[in-house]
Design a binder for these strands. Structure first.
Length: 507
DNA sequence: TTCCGACAGTGGGGTCGCAAT
DNA sequence: ATTGCGACCCCACTATCGGAA
């Protein structure tokens, strides 16, 4: 029953302790019908079996009142969500809305609240994939490591968890790397400097250029090639030149990990927006590949010539990769324990317009998620002193706090401030409280509105990765990945950085 | 007892495809 | 032709719990 999940979710949310959350979830999983286990695991980890159904925050407005008595089963709810997803073409939005209303009319208030959070993509119960892995392990009586391993290979916890509940460890071990089915990609942590990254890895590391493109996983079985993104979406049709590259390799049973990127004629990278736009385009691909050709650089191999490599150390996997693809397709790499040598490699990557480097432990096997810190990215950081122009009220745990800052640079020509973007990152709870009070003193207009305009008096030091062209902001440029470092009470708005300084970073 | 790894939460800019206007 | 929405590309950071040291 849906009500059982809604109650479990509420209990999970009410307990701060992770072990208690795991207990609540495991108890639910222990009594769920095996036929509905996949749905239960998906919903309680904030996912939908359909992945996405075309309903977002807007579609969740103006829903009907709940009924009094709970009767909906998981299968009923899930079938309705499938019907919503299946809508397409003229009139589909109205039909979607009708079906969604039908769903919400058929459930109680507590179920509505759960569905709203689930469909809105913000479960806010303090448990998602990571906690659910533990809960599945507990309910199925298997080691969590077995669940994690199967998840890496299958990439979809509801399927893995359902198998674990039914078939235990044996069922989990049956998950193998399958060519044509994407694997959860290994992710990197970050470090503030190359020295810090090398220290974390303990001496010798493999350094690789960090290219500012789109992560791809290439699968080839004989003549069949499939290309997947980080979220395991199939983008083969959008990147035909990549499929051709893989098809031209001598080995015909392959899974490779790499980055696809648009390069200019001189070999320097295009801005990320160019690569992303090209990769996302589904129409006119044949013409686009002439005007914006994509290049691919591989940095890992999960399977070469039919041999699975995931459990091998990085050094061995890379050796296999280097044997399988020509050097022109390899991400430039340097294995070193020497900081000076590494620094020169990093500086060279930046000079050529790339994002930074990734430092890798030579010993680490391939594992999904961030566990193990086998990969550490290092990127340079810019900073600017900007003026807070406005602030937005926060959600969730930031409710009641002014959270999101509108940032502006000084325009010497007009004496006014030009907005360059927003940020909510880098703020401690203490700082959030302080700035909320301070902002209400500076409020220049109604403070009960979503956005609270401020007199431009506060200077804040902002870190960011770069400046990009913006179709949204008046200066035609925006900061990428802006975050707060600290307030600068010692500075006045007249000391703030200017739009000219920012524009110089765009070029 | 202290430290630190892993998670969840809170949102950022940009772009595409699609349906509605 | 334009606008709004959902989805997904890139992502940084803090708070918290609980196992490791």
């Amino acid at each position: 029953m849906l009500i059982d999940l809604a109650r479990t979710s509420a209990a999970v949310a009410a307990d701060a302790a992770r072990l208690a959350k795991i207990r609540h979830l495991a108890e639910l999983l222990s009594r769920v019908d095996p036929d509905e286990a996949e749905i239960a695991i998906a919903y309680l980890s904030g996912e939908l079996p359909q992945r996405q159904i075309g309903v977002g925050w807007r579609g969740l407005q103006d829903l009907p009142e709940p009924r009094q008595i709970a009767s909906a089963t998981l299968t009923q709810v899930n079938d309705l969500l499938s019907r919503i997803k299946a809508q397409a073409g003229p009139g589909s939005q109205a039909t979607r809305k009708d079906l969604l209303a039908e769903l919400f009319r058929s459930v109680t208030r507590q179920e509505q609240s759960f569905l709203l959070r689930l469909l809105g993509g913000e479960l806010r119960q303090g448990a998602l994939n990571g906690v659910m892995i533990e809960a599945v392990a507990k309910a199925a009586g298997v080691p969590a490591a077995e669940v994690r391993r199967a998840l890496t290979l299958r990439g979809w916890l509801p399927a893995v968890g359902s198998a674990a509940l039914t078939g235990g460890v044996d069922a989990l071990r049956a998950f193998r790397l399958e060519v044509g089915r994407p694997v959860s990609p290994m992710l990197a942590q970050s470090a503030p400097s190359l020295a810090a990254a090398l220290a974390k890895l303990g001496g010798t590391a493999a350094l690789e250029w960090k290219l500012d493109g789109v992560r791809v996983q290439a699968h080839r079985s004989g003549p069949d090639v499939r290309i997947f993104t980080r979220t395991l979406d199939d983008i083969t049709a959008q990147v035909p030149e990549l499929a051709e590259v893989v098809l031209a390799l001598p080995a015909d049973d392959l899974v490779l990990d790499g980055e696809v990127i648009a390069l200019r004629a001189d070999g320097r990278p295009e801005p990320f927006q160019v690569t992303a736009s090209r990769v996302a385009s589904k129409t006119d691909v044949a013409r686009l590949r002439e005007s914006v050709p994509l290049s691919v650089f591989f940095f890992d191999a999960l399977r070469v010539a039919g041999a699975d490599l995931l459990d091998l150390p990085d050094a061995d996997r890379h050796a296999a990769l280097a044997g399988a693809v020509p050097e022109t397709l390899l991400t430039p790499r340097l294995v070193t324990a020497d900081l000076d040598e590494g620094t020169a490699f990093y500086a060279d990557a930046l000079r050529r317009g790339h994002e930074g480097v990734v430092a890798k432990s030579a010993a680490t096997p391939y594992a999904a998620g961030r566990r193990g810190a086998g990969w550490i990215k290092v990127k340079p950081r810019h900073t600017l002193d900007l003026v807070v122009l406005a602030a937005e009220w926060g959600h969730g745990r930031r409710q009641g706090k002014l959270s999101n800052l509108h940032l502006g640079a000084r325009d010497p020509a007009t004496g006014r401030f030009v907005m360059l973007g927003k940020t909510f990152k880098g703020l401690t709870d203490e700082l959030l409280s302080w700035q909320t009070e301070r902002f209400l003193e500076l409020a220049d207009g109604p403070a009960d509105h979503w956005v609270v305009p401020l007199r431009p008096e506060l200077v804040v030091e902002i870190a960011f990765d770069g400046v990009q062209r913006s179709p949204r902001y008046p200066g035609g440029m925006a900061l990428r990945f802006a975050r707060v470092l600290r307030y600068r009470p010692d500075k006045t708005p007249q000391d703030a950085d200017t739009v000219d300084t920012v524009r110089a970073l765009l070029l």
